[in-house]
Design a binder for these strands. Structure first.
Lengths: 143, 143
DNA sequence: GTTGAAAATGAAAATCATTCTCTAATAGGG
DNA sequence: CCCTATTAGAGAATGATTTTCATTTTCAAC
């Protein structure tokens, strides 16, 4: 299944050649259920015994970003975290500040609000970034 | 008036001593109507003929951030931009990607949504970042 | 006015994610 | 198998932010 997804993904990108490295990045990324940084992803791939340069990982992630295949988030340090976009549209996530686990949240209200802001302010091409963090039930001290 | 604000601000911070540098940072910041980066702020202060170290500017901004006196935003490059928080609560802004000018937007809907997310997911201490960018009417090519 | 301890400053070095550069490797059509 | 455009990647560069630490400054007490 993850192979399948990786293949599908690869076909979405304009790359002219398929290489061991590109395959490895996609393959590992498909298996990530949580947001990962470029460095973490690189470490994961390396841990799989596949040698891939950091540069290549960054390149792939940027490419995936350009083609809207990943959601990108910034952690508190400003580091960028990536995660494959499950379906078509983009999602918003609620990330646990303690364990880092994330869950998608419904955001129609926000999307609608953003659209309305665009209309009422006269601003064009309004884009939005919405990031939510909290402490999940599991991480909460005592319940 | 800006003096007044600067003084008031200074009183909100826990600093034990008032120095020329701290005063200068606050004074210039009070006069900024738009978001500025630490570096820009430093340049502005320097342009005023007052010698202040970059370090001090960063320190002050971090302090203001800790005490919730500034709104912080990240530009496309990940650089942090600061702006004094006008009133009590925090605001959200719609920033023009072309000229950088920003305007506050009503965000009760988002605030309410965030609160609801916290309640329904069981996450505690939910915090949110909402950033909107667009192209303002003035910057739009031809109307 | 003088003093001294604590606070504040700032130049320079460190950090660190990300990007750039440029050469070597190689995929894949011919 | 060969050729060449594409891709890879090591290492240097970048640049915002933070840290370090020696020096300066504030300000309350004398």
């Amino acid at each position: 299944m993850s192979c399948q997804n990786a293949e599908q993904l690869a076909r979405c990108l304009p790359a002219a050649r398929r290489t061991r490295q590109r395959g490895a990045v996609l393959h590992v990324l498909v298996d990530c259920t949580e947001f990962v940084s470029a460095q973490q992803l690189h470490a994961l791939i390396t841990a799989d015994g596949i040698a891939v340069g950091l540069t290549t990982v960054y390149r792939m992630l940027r490419e995936l970003e350009v083609y809207d295949r990943v959601d990108v988030v910034r952690d508190e340090a400003g580091e960028r975290l990536y995660r494959l976009r499950p379906f078509g549209g983009h999602r918003h996530y609620l990330v646990c500040r303690s364990c880092g686990r994330s869950r998608p949240v419904d955001a129609e209200v926000v999307e609608a609000w953003v659209d309305r802001v665009g209309e009422t302010t006269g601003y064009a091409a309004v884009e939005h970034t919405v990031e939510l963090t909290g402490i999940c039930a599991t991480c909460r001290p005592t319940s």
